[in-house]
Amino acid sequence: MADFAQTLMTALAIGSLYALIALGYTMVYGILKFINFAHSDIVVLGAWVSYTLANKILPMLGLNPHNPETPPPLWVGALILLSAMVACGLLGFVIERLAYKPLRRAPRLNVLITAIGVSLLLQNVGQLNYVFGASPQKMPALLPNIDLLRISLPSGDGYRDVVIGLVDVMIFATSAVLMLVLEYLVFRTKLGTAMRAVSFSTDNASLMGIPVDRVVSFTFVLGSSLAAAAGFLYVMKYPGLNQPAHSIWVLLGLKAFVAAVIGGIGNVRGAVLGGFVIAFVEQFGAFYISSNYRDVYVFALLIIILLVRPTGLLGSPVREKV
């Protein structure tokens, strides 16, 4: 019981991170129909930008960034989160304009290769000594280490404490707010309608007077800032910050991508659902079966779902016409 509750909490927090990242994948795929392999690197940049900002801002307030006992006031965290989102949003805009826009009419495979190139570029520029460096760092604590709730639940033959930390709740809450904002943007505003129109058919949308290029740019900005938020939240939960080219980041991005596919790629609500499904399978599989194979569960689930329902859980089947 206690183990179950604890795993559930972790799965919810991780799931919301996967969902945030998956949203970026799914939006870009929905509009441009290619897998943006560089998306996971935006997450990394978001994390590293947050780290750099925290190390600059905290001393300014007279706080020691390496002392977890003195967390800054809450607005500092919010400021860092917003700055990281803006910075990565800008970067997403620049990347789309320079690397992807000239390839709008090229075969999809070429765009995919370019995305891999951009991904390699971001990773390795990030590793340069005068950018972020190639050694792991420790993220300063921005939130007080408080347990919001501590309850004793039966576990095996005794009782165990189940802890709901502030960090987990903040991750969940921040993601939920961002996802609601996105839901509003996509389904309730004019811009969102334009996005859905472009996703439905780029040519028809441009015939209807929709500025396709601007909509695509906006999608990238949106996806990249969500990725930055995910990066920020990720280092809040796991303060050990790996160097930009570490494979753990790529795996994080891959799982988020799997989440987007499982939910039905191109479908915004599907990405959120997929994120939580993946996190649940991974966390419960890791706890109840074996933690060594946690990546296997995710990819096995992916293959099963693709074979049974090739368009994902919420995706609509595409009929092919000659």
Partner: peptide
């Protein structure tokens, strides 16, 4: 970095 740039420019 050069490898990545080569790839992007090539495409």
């Amino acid at each position: 970095i050069m490898y990545a740039l080569l790839l992007i420019i090539m495409m």
